[in-house]
Structures are given as C-alpha cells and as structure tokens.
Design a protein around this nucleic acid. Structure first.
Lengths: 357, 357
DNA sequence: AAATTTGATGTAATCGATTGCATGAAATAT
DNA sequence: ATATTTCATGCAATCGATTACATCAAATTT
C-alpha cells in the first residue's frame, strides 16, 4: 500500500513533458507562466497526490520556516500558554514551531540551542534557564544572524529583543486595589530577594502604599518561598498577632491560597475580615471559593507579542534594528477574595476557561 | 559582526586542501579515514565554528529527524504533560519535536497534517480533535509510510498504533477504594453518554459496585457536563435528598471540587459524612483542603510510552508490524477527601510538583 | 619480483526545489 | 518589412551533506 516514492516536481514535469522549473513556477503562481499550463500543472499535481518537500526548498532558499522555542518546562501552565500564543500567530504563516525544554538546566539549554541551529531554524524564542548567568551561547545565535527574542525572563546585561511583563506595575495595581477597597494594614508575602521579579513586586507594593500615604511597615513584609505550605504557615503566624491585618497581597497565588485555607478554617471572613490578592492568575484561582483576585501575566499574549515581533523584524531586516524591550501591562483580575465594596461594574473580567477531559 | 556565511564542509575541505567527502567522513568517524586527518578535521571544524546543516543531510538521506505531535491544546495540563513525556524520551535521540495544535477542529487538524508531511517528519504522534469522526487524513499518513501513533483518544475503527489509558479500570479502582473505606451509597457524577471515556468510567463504577454486591441504583448516577458549576448544582440537589449518600465518585475533578465546596459550606464533613473521589488528578487536587483523591492518567508516562513505541518501530521497520494498542494502568492517588479509615501505609503516592513562578 | 590486498582519499551523482540567464516564438512598434 | 518587445518556457547551477564507485599508493602475500 505504502507507495514508496513520493511524487516530485520532476515526476509531474515528465508526465506533462515540460521541465521541472516550469512546474515549480506554475505551482508558485509565477506571472510568467501561462494560465493554461498553470491549471494543467495544478490539476496534475493533485492527481498525482503531490506534496511539496519543504526540506528541499529550505536548503535551496536557506530558510527553513522553522522557529525554535526554548522554555524551562512545557507542563507549566504559564509556558504552555506562551507557546500557545506563539502557535496562534505562526499558524497563520508558513512557520512551524519546534519546542525544546531546558528543564532550567544550562547544559540542556546549550544543547537545545545547538540542535536548533543545526535544524537551521529561522528564529529562536527563549525563556532562559534559572541556572543561566552567562549568555554567550545566546550571543552565538545573534552572531549567526538568527533573530533571537527572549520572553518572560530577561537580563539587561545582554542586549536583545525581549518581551516581558511589568511585575512592578502588577504589584502596584494589586495593592492599589486593596487600598481602594478600604484596606490599610496590608501584609505582603514577598519572595526571595535575589529574584528580580520578586524585588519588582515588592517595589510595586511599597510604591502603592506610599502614594496613598500609608506607611510601609517592614513587619508587614514577610519573605518565604511562596509555596502553598508557606502560605499556610504564615497565616497561622499572623493569627497570633495582636492586631490582625485587613489584607494580604501575596507575590504568589499558591501562598495566597494556603493562607486563605487557614483563615477560612479559623472562621475569618474573606474578604470582609481579611482581603486577599495573589499573583499569576493560576487556573485554580477561579475555582476556589471565594475566587482569588490575582494579577494576570498575559501569558498567551506574551507569546503572540513575541511571534509578532519576530514577523515585524523580518519585514525590515535590512536595517540594523536596535533591540527592543516590550513590557506588557499586567491585568488585575478581581474576584471575590478582595471585593469588599458593593459590586462595581467590571467590564474586562477574563476568566480562564474551565477545562475538563 | 554577523558573519553572513556559515562554514560548510567545503570550507573546511578547502582550508585543509582535501575534499568535502573526506571531511564529511572524518566528522562521521568513518573507519576508512586515518586518525590523523580525523583529528585535523575535527580540530579545524571547531576552529571555524562549523555547525552541520541538518537540512542538507535530511534532504540527502530522506529523513528529517523531526517528529510531529498534534494535540488539541497545548495549554491543557494533560496534553502539555504528554508532550513533556515525548520530549523527555526524544531529547536523548537526534529527534526534534514539532508541536501543532488542532484546537479540536477538523480543518486545523488536516492542515496540521499537511504541514507536517511537507516538513518531511519521520513520524507523527496525535490525539485527534473532538470533531474528527472520519480518519482518512490520518490514513494518508500511514499510506505514505510514515509511522503514526495515536494517544489518549483512539478509535477502534481505524487500525493504528495507539497508547491510551484504561478509563474503566481507573473508575473501578476509585469506586473499589470508596467501598473499602466503608461507603455503600455511592453517587456517580457521570459525563455525556456519547463520549466513550465517560461510558467506560461509568462501567467501571457499576462493575465495582456489583462485585461488592452493592446494588447499582440508577438514581445515584447523575449525568452532567462535569464542569465546576455543575458539581455545585448537583451537590445542592443532593442536599435536598431524604437520605444523603456517603460518597461521590465524579468522572471529573472539576465537578468533584464544586461539590466539595458546597458540602463544606453546609458543614458536611469530608470524608466523614461524604467521601469524594475525582478523575484526572488535576494539579489543583493536591492544593485544596482536604486534598481530593483522584485517578491519575499518567500523562507524562503516556508521552514516554508513545515515543518509545516509535523508537521500537524504527528498529524492526523491515517487518510489517501489526498495530498495537497499549493500555496504560491508571493510578488512584489517595488524599484526604476519601480517607475515612486510619491512615494506611501508602507506598506509591505521587504528588504533582508544586509550581510557582 | 610480481600479484594482491588494504588503506586513504578523490570524483561525481544525488536528494528536490529554486532561480538567474538564456532561447525562441509571437506580438507589437517603427 | 525590419526591429524591438513581450511572453512562455528551457537550461543549468545551486543549496550542503552523503555515498557508491573509482583511484592510487603502500603494504603484504606468494
């Protein structure tokens, strides 16, 4: 059954007693080919079940129509969603996407890049590994003249196109929202200080407090690894305080959720007694009760932006473009965990789709 | 800076005053090349920063070392995880993975297949779209002699390699577990009857009941779309019953979670009053309180199996292999929502990793 | 010493599509 | 009627690596 030989333009040419070049041009709708032969060629191609060999075309043209995407892990919601955004955009073009995972390992990242370069990809989108501090392997990509765009994580030392989210602004919005709800004694669950996104989130929190003439109380800023368990532990600690806070802004949804569980168990009303806001808009935030207000990082949009930036770069590749840093505006998704005042008109509530198998 | 021309084997050959074929052979460690030249070539290649062009090799050899994976959505945990499994295995080989999303649309699926065939992939792994009932476009793949493996979703009418999970067995295990915990009046949240996986899960539930000489009460089997909201609604209804059930086995984690929330709000103790078990082991199941017992579908393992099956097929491609259906054994992950008896030794509890940004 | 084997490398075709540069015929302009 | 375009297609090189076959010198065998 399996017809070993795939038909090529030469097969079509032979059958029609013309040359392969004519066939090639006819299929590409070249203006110099008569309509009659075009029709004939197309018809015959269909009859012979012709499928172009893009590998051959790639070799000749020097462009593979492949894009490499390097992410730490594909089964992390955020990155999967970024990839989705990339795919959404590139699916309407001739590009195919190759996915590589670094598992946050520098070695793996290097070998990924090597593999992608060998596959002659036309561009690489990457979110670098946590281990990565030296960027010479990324510079290799740029030196080869292959467009590179970093997303989510980026380093200012390395001058390259990047698409990131504004963590500072996200935290600012979250805190400002809590203040608008009447909260004044707002605890911040902060992350490790050596990670830039957590420093930015803390800055956003502090700035929002200051702008509203609320004092930034160091005792209200608690550092942890921001995991679920830490959230629970911190909540237990807070319950021992003389004076309870009236809100918590957590730099992670997980810690926020852990805290909520503990508070609920102690019959503390959310958001009446303590309002809670998280960060990342993980899918579970809309599932729990009350829904957890959170900062959405526009993961899919980030992917779309990245892909579109690449396509834009292609158009005027002539010029030596200066690398651009695109900073996406995070969005506060307001849910029950922070909505103390009467329901306000909420025109842009984006709920992640419910998923079931 | 960007050295326009990449070095080829010809460049190396010219520099060393030998031919490209010798270079090619030296790099491939061909036995007929002297060690001296091998060393020299390898050294020079490194110096000249040579990077093989796998496109050219692919054209010549007729094998691209690309694998196409078609999934409905990449940002669905289950599929992302399958892809992860595939990547895990193929990363140790020369294969690269191209991802395509069908968005559960038949048209998209067809165009994905077309694109992959044009890219000359060496194999295709696919989970077909919900819309798909006719499989002729998949048959095209097989007819071209390209290995095709379906995963998760499969149709018995179409004879092809497949890796799936045993939904029946998963449901059986879940129900059996509830019975072991002393439950007798077990409600089943069933899914749409036209979907095979939901029929299988119901069968598993019924069979487990029968085996334990418990009657299968049609009134205890409730159909819905299994979304979170449905779970809540059904729980409210159940609360009106004269006699409450002592357990719920839901064919979806979402519905189970919705029900749990409602029960908790009505001060019904879980699992003492009502034990709950879900299906799919979604990541949130380990986050909520109590943790939701659920059936794990081994998504990553499914991907690994699929990739390994492909690699096995390659080895003895000589023979006309009969398509194999691999059925993975689902695993019951026991958590607080169903554990009424004294904690039993639990030796294989696999908790999904907590993820935080 | 002649014959044969082995070892190391070169020659050239090939994979399939693309494309700059002819070519020859028909159409139009002078 | 001759000169010049325009049109439709053919020719042949090219992309870079691979590989069957050829070649030639050195090593070994008889």
């Amino acid at each position: 059954m399996s017809s070993k030989k795939r038909t090529t333009i030469h097969d079509i040419a032979k059958k029609l007693d013309i040359t392969a070049s004519t066939v090639s041009r006819a299929l590409k709708d070249h203006p110099r080919i008569s309509d009659a032969t075009k029709e004939l060629v197309i018809k015959t191609a269909k009859e012979m079940n012709y499928q172009p060999n893009s590998i051959a075309a790639a070799l000749r043209r020097g462009t593979s129509n492949l894009i490499g995407v390097i992410i730490p892990n594909i089964d992390r919601n955020f990155f999967a969603s970024v990839v989705r955004g990339v795919e959404d955009v590139l699916n309407d073009t001739n590009y195919n996407v190759i996915i590589c995972q670094s598992n946050d390992s520098l070695e793996k990242e290097k070998s990924n890049i090597k593999a992608l370069l060998e596959a002659q990809v036309d561009g690489i989108f990457a979110s670098y590994a946590k281990e990565t501090t030296d960027f010479s392997h990324f510079e290799d990509i740029v030196n080869r003249g292959i467009p590179l765009i970093l997303f989510d994580r980026m380093q200012d030392v390395f001058n390259v196109d990047a698409v990131v989210i504004d963590d500072y602004l996200g935290a600012y919005k979250a805190t400002e929202h809590l203040i608008e709800q009447g909260c004044e004694r707002i605890v911040h669950f902060a992350g490790p200080e050596n990670v830039s996104i957590y420093r930015d989130r803390r800055r956003g929190y502090e700035e929002a407090m200051k702008r509203s003439h609320l004092s930034v109380d160091e005792d209200l800023i608690i550092h942890s690894d921001l995991k679920l368990e830490s959230g629970k532990r911190l909540a237990e600690e807070i319950l021992e305080w003389n004076e309870l806070p009236d809100a918590i802004f957590s730099a992670s949804d997980y810690a926020a959720m852990g805290a909520m569980e503990v508070f609920k168990k102690h019959d503390i009303e959310i958001p009446q007694d303590i309002a809670v806001v998280g960060f990342s808009n993980e899918s579970f935030t809309s599932l729990i009760d009350p829904g957890l207000t959170s900062v959405d990082q526009h993961s899919k949009k980030m992917g779309q932006f990245t892909a579109n930036l690449f396509l834009d770069r292609l158009k005027d590749k002539s010029k030596d473009h200066t690398p651009t840093k695109t900073v996406l505006n995070p969005e506060l998704i307001i849910r029950g965990s922070s909505l103390k005042k009467v329901e306000q008109p909420q025109d842009q509530k984006i709920e992640p789709e419910h998923i079931n198998t």
